[in-house]
């Protein structure tokens, strides 16, 4: 389990990084920031990049800031920074609530927020967060900058709309309004493992009625997504255990879950419904 050989590049600026990606387009170049997903893939030789471009010298990607109602997380922001850098508002609180579910501490010290999104594991907590919050993903390439909406970004298991010559330079998350409620629930066989299914729910209460509901499901399908059918069940109604069961059922009905030798689609579907119910109950408390 020793990685295959590669050529190392260490750009100092984003422009250098994108130029390298452009020049090496035909030679399987990969970016590395935290490397907590890439390194195991290279150990198993499932990934054998010919070139590795280390982003850690690109200081301009180490930003974490709020402006214009958006929180922007740069490509070098590690998971632990999410807790250490006081991110304001409800979105900050939400990120801190999700954080402890990501792997374990020694992974969180190295792995990056944007790296999780670039890797796009279907069970990734940050991918679910980005999908549920309708994040905007910012990609840079030698030909310029573009923004990708989360709903267009995830294309399948470990598949995204990022082009081979693009760097996911930052992710922008909307600041949730004061008073917005949220909860995250996931189920995995062991602590710290990737979830078999996960639910992130967010809503506001206006005059005792649910508004602006967001129900995101991760781990169950090949990509995380919002389940509009379940959101429609909730909006305009009074929170109650019965309503949450109804919303869970809507999630179950809308999902088309993955299946593997140890986990059936039916099990994942039921799990997603349960986690939705439980998250809604917690958020309503």
């Amino acid at each position: 389990m020793k990685p295959a050989p590669f050529t190392l590049h260490r750009p100092a600026t984003l422009a250098q990084a994108t130029a390298l990606l452009h020049d090496l387009a035909d030679e399987d170049a990969r970016l590395i920031a935290g490397g907590q997903s890439l390194a195991p893939m290279m150990a198993f030789r499932l990934a054998r990049p010919g070139h590795l471009i280390d982003l850690n010298g690109v200081g301009e990607l180490a930003h974490l800031c709020e402006s214009g109602g958006m929180i922007e997380i740069g490509a070098l922001i590690r998971h632990v920074d999410i807790a250490r850098r006081a991110i304001p508002g409800v979105t900050g609180a939400l990120l801190r609530a999700v954080l402890p579910h990501i792997a374990h501490h020694p992974i969180r010290t190295r792995g990056t927020f944007c790296g999780s999104l670039a890797h796009a594991d279907p069970a990734s907590e940050w991918c679910l967060t980005a999908a549920t919050l309708d994040a905007t993903l910012v990609a840079h390439s030698a030909s310029g900058r573009r923004e990708i909406a989360a709903r267009d970004y995830f294309e399948g298991a470990m598949a995204t709309a990022l082009r081979a010559d693009e760097v996911l330079s930052s992710v922008r998350l909307p600041q949730l309004p004061e008073g917005a409620r949220f909860a995250f629930h996931e189920f995995s066989r062991r602590s710290g493992d990737f979830a078999i299914a996960a639910a992130l729910v967010i809503f506001e209460l206006r005059d005792g009625l649910i508004a602006q509901a967001r129900i995101g499901i991760g781990g169950a399908e090949d990509r995380p997504r919002r389940i509009s059918e379940a959101e429609a069940v909730l909006n305009g109604r009074k929170p109650s255990p019965e309503l949450f069961v109804e919303a869970g059922a809507a999630v179950a009905a809308a999902l088309c879950p993955m299946e593997d030798i140890s986990t059936s689609a039916a099990y994942r579907r039921e799990l997603a419904a349960t986690l939705t119910e439980r998250a809604l109950e917690e958020a309503a408390r």
Binding site: L8, Q36, P40, A43, P106, T109
Partner: peptide
């Protein structure tokens, strides 16, 4: 394990606990 799950290789780099099998030396 050499794939970042077992933690036997945990060390401290610049004050942070990390898994040394998930870092390249150059990092």
């Amino acid at each position: 394990c050499e794939h970042g799950v077992c933690g036997a290789c945990t060390i401290i780099v610049n004050g942070e606990t990390v898994r040394s099998c998930l870092m390249f030396g150059f990092q």
